[in-house]
Design a protein around this nucleic acid. Structure first.
Lengths: 199, 199
DNA sequence: TTTTGTTGATTGATTGATCAATTAAAAATA
DNA sequence: TATTTTTAATTGATCAATCAATCAACAAAA
């Protein structure tokens, strides 16, 4: 029973948080979503905070699995970059409830060290993956800079999607990031070429 | 007394929210920051929600004033774009307490229509200002796309700053956005030139 | 019988909001 | 000016609601 209940409660927490747009959703509501009593949620997770942390872990685990799969399929460095971008814009990542949950977690990171560590670890891995691929396409400095830009763009587009007043679609958001990478690489290419011309 | 108290309470709310990283800060703590009793805060604002809304209004008002000043000083379209970017990266906008408050407000926008409307209005004005200037430098479609990119970049860099695990400085963040604009405009220029060559 | 799963009832703490009471300031009146 | 009256400012005390957490009790399975 235990693994079943744990999964059901984690899924229920994500759903409840998404619906509510806040981590301040009562344990009772989460438990109701999972079809159990509030007492049982405490029995298995000990505290609300622990359940929330497990919920974030579950989100990140899924994201990582998707990323690994996408990266394995990609053959060239440029394709790897696109794969990373694509994973972050996957449909279920952009589902309103998921976006709402992410936003709530980011906000919570300001108070909880544990949550901050989790999000930080994810951010580092994302950057690391991006830099590794970009290094084949640009110098170390440019790779780091572009990686930071891509990560910020993804976060920003995510945030704006969360406001629902989104002026652009998911596909357009993804295209915007792709375009950023292309423009930056092209600009670097041009700089490089002009330097050779000058020399 | 009334205007004095209102201002003191709004400032106190911003500070308390920033310190706490959440809108869930008790009215009593906000009142304490302002040196008055909790009852007085209710007396002047009626409810906690109203005080929070006035607090956001105050933030947006300041930002708008800064933007107007910066835009007035800028002479060329490109300088206007830089001015808008610069204002958003002003030191006091990046103060930890301000970033924390912004994040909390974004999260709150998912629940409160009033808050969402306020943030949406600000986002629309930012976009409008950007597009107006960019139209002098690129076509309508490109202008809209680049404006969205700039806005998303600003939001994303802001978000990442909020996690404190910021790998890059404020100046570097600002430079990154500037570079995005330059790269996009250069890419457009290149596309345009090659088309002429082909023709 | 022992272990595991499960819940209803309850508790203790937090907190937004209210209100009667108090003080201080201002206005009106003598 | 002095006195009374009215208005504004302010607070301590308290209420009512919410909620995480606990626990004793019960059911089911091993």
């Amino acid at each position: 029973m235990e693994p079943l209940r744990r999964k059901a409660l984690v899924d229920a927490a994500l759903r409840a948080i998404g619906e509510n747009g806040s981590l301040a959703v009562p344990m009772a509501e989460i438990a109701r979503h999972a079809g159990v009593s509030p007492a049982l949620a405490h029995h298995y997770f000990g505290s609300k905070e622990q359940l929330l942390i497990e919920t974030i872990r579950s989100l990140l685990r899924q994201l990582r699995a998707d990323a690994v799969a996408a990266l394995t399929a990609a053959q060239t460095p440029r394709a790897r970059v696109s794969a990373i971008i694509r994973v972050n814009f996957q449909a279920h990542q952009f589902a309103p409830e998921t976006v709402a949950a992410w936003l709530a977690f980011y906000s919570e990171a300001q108070r909880s060290d544990a949550v901050r560590r989790l999000l930080f670890t994810y951010a580092r891995r994302l950057r690391s993956n991006l830099v590794a691929s970009l290094k084949h396409l640009a110098g170390t400095d440019d790779a780091a800079r572009i990686a930071e830009g891509v990560a910020a763009l993804i976060d920003g587009l995510y945030l704006r999607q969360g406001l629902k007043s989104a002026p652009i679609s998911i596909a357009a958001s993804q295209a915007l990031v792709e375009d950023y990478v292309s423009a930056e690489l092209a600009q670097r290419q041009a700089r490089h070429t002009s330097q050779e011309t000058q020399a």
